[in-house]
Design a binder for these strands. Sequence first.
DNA 1: AGCCTTCCCGGTAACGTTACCGGAAGCGGT
DNA 2: ACCGCTTCCGGTAACGTTACCGGGAAGGCT
Lengths: 336, 336
Amino acid sequence: MTIKDIAKACGVGVSTVSRVLNNRPDVSPEVRARVLEVVESTGYIPNNSARDLGRSQTDAIGVVVRGTGNLFFSEVIKTIALEIDRSGCTMVPRYIGSDDDEVKAGAILEREKKLRGLIFLGGRFDYTPAELSLIGVPYVCCSFTNCFGSLSEAEFSSVSIDDYRTAYLAVEKLIERGHRRIAALIPSCSDHSISELRYNGYRDALRDHGIAFDPDLVMENGGCFGMPETYQGMRTLLERGAGFTAAFVLSDTTAIAAIKALEDAGRRVPEDVSVIAIDGLEISGYTSPTLSTMVQPAEEMGRETVRLLLEVLNGGENRHVRLETAFRTGASIRTL
Amino acid sequence: MTIKDIAKACGVGVSTVSRVLNNRPDVSPEVRARVLEVVESTGYIPNNSARDLGRSQTDAIGVVVRGTGNLFFSEVIKTIALEIDRSGCTMVPRYIGSDDDEVKAGAILEREKKLRGLIFLGGRFDYTPAELSLIGVPYVCCSFTNCFGSLSEAEFSSVSIDDYRTAYLAVEKLIERGHRRIAALIPSCSDHSISELRYNGYRDALRDHGIAFDPDLVMENGGCFGMPETYQGMRTLLERGAGFTAAFVLSDTTAIAAIKALEDAGRRVPEDVSVIAIDGLEISGYTSPTLSTMVQPAEEMGRETVRLLLEVLNGGENRHVRLETAFRTGASIRTL
DNA sequence: AGCCTTCCCGGTAACGTTACCGGAAGCGGT
DNA sequence: ACCGCTTCCGGTAACGTTACCGGGAAGGCT
């Protein structure tokens, strides 16, 4: 069953059928209706490969996911997949490690699969314009913040939360509850990126509330949002001996690991130490204690990401959208 | 840059280049080497659409993922993606809801994207041969057990754990520790499938150890492995008043929800109630208490799934592989 | 009436491969 | 010298679309 069969069945030319299928103008309503009817009744589906070849362009959208352990990304991916499907495009995922070069991975994916567009889901994004020029298609970065001034904002799109502000607010929640000795667990693998911004939020919140910054309360642990590394990080922090009544952790899963470290060391949460995190995973509403966390709108992020990409693909301008986070109160913090 | 350019640069015909690229015989070693060299140096990558069109076949492998909340699947997907990439094929994912018809979704995906093969990742799979005949390409079911005798085992491949035995062993762990009043939380949405088998394992383990089956200890809650449903299920079970010292829960995440329900009702885990689960997610090693759980080999499942599909695609026979689970001891169970 | 648009529509050459056919060259055997 | 076989290779028609060109019909204007 090809477009020729449809054309013959309708008594029109193939180009007319093609026009109808791609709903272009220059087709009379009657002809359009007839073609559509035949297409419907025969259950004809155009051949993708041929279409791609004819257009010399594919309908594939690459999605590079960096950091395999990140549960939050798993949430976002589902929405991205859904939205890409809805747009009639094909999602081509590629998972890479936390320390892999995502831009290189994207470029390879683009060459291999002849992509139309690219989505980057992940943290570190400190590339030079030269490196980024390897990517020849529009791209949008999700869960990302442009913290290197070298790249023009007009050259790509992005959707993210305000990491700085979210961290600031999280820490402020602790301060509001009387905490002044607040530890922070920062993954060190993704400098210059999300963790950097969240770290700044932490420091500025302290400063704005007249609390002196104490480097002994900050633990930079390796491993991008990894649970073992964070667990170990918290243990080391405790051994350091600098007392604290609260901790700010950058993600839900690592917060869970940090809490375990606290408990294994004989500290109770929240009685001895309050913990606040960022993510808002479903599961963190069921752990013991439940997590107080800044909820990222996973679905909205996915939806916006795809929407932005489609916009650019349709000739629109690059845009950068910031999504709101919301504080979800759990049992992991208490008022001093 | 097309195959013609390569042919011209090598002084050979396009068909020769094509033969080399698809490493077919009937090419002399010298010519093959020369072509390969030019390909290498020019960085030429064949056009996928044209190849697919020429072959009238694609390199796309559909992956239908059912049950969006299932974290275990998220783990498996990554390996599946990796292995599909390694094979040179393209993964085309589709996420569907827990109550959607996965076979229909697969058939649609196949028609839309002209798939070469299909992978089903998910639970319920009680379809008639007529329904399954909608799928016109080889497929393999992952995390699945053929519990409907109607379908011949030669018609598809599958990889799964032995759900019956795994559940049996899990319950046995509890019995070994002196428990005799053992509750079970069973998702009721996916009858005739994984939960059915695991339920049978539960009942037989009781029986084989001379423990009478008590229907009051079984809670069938709706929602496929959903945390809210399981939480509510456990609450209802407790209100029922039938005492128990242990509970068998079908997945890690639902076990975490069940534990919260227990704690919210004033029962402590494991002091008052022991809990055992199945999955072995990383996160369940960090929750409080850590979970005792039967670990499913997520990576191996993903690897085997893709391997089986490729086998069939290359003319091999359908196979069904069973993977081993391992008990991982956590703090959620205790000896009476 | 003649001309110029505009609106539709059909024909056909791309698009970049693969599969098939046929042919040249080399070689051994009669 | 002839035949038949194998090995290797080039030419070319598919594959199923899309994009472009051109043409006919209809309608408005001079």
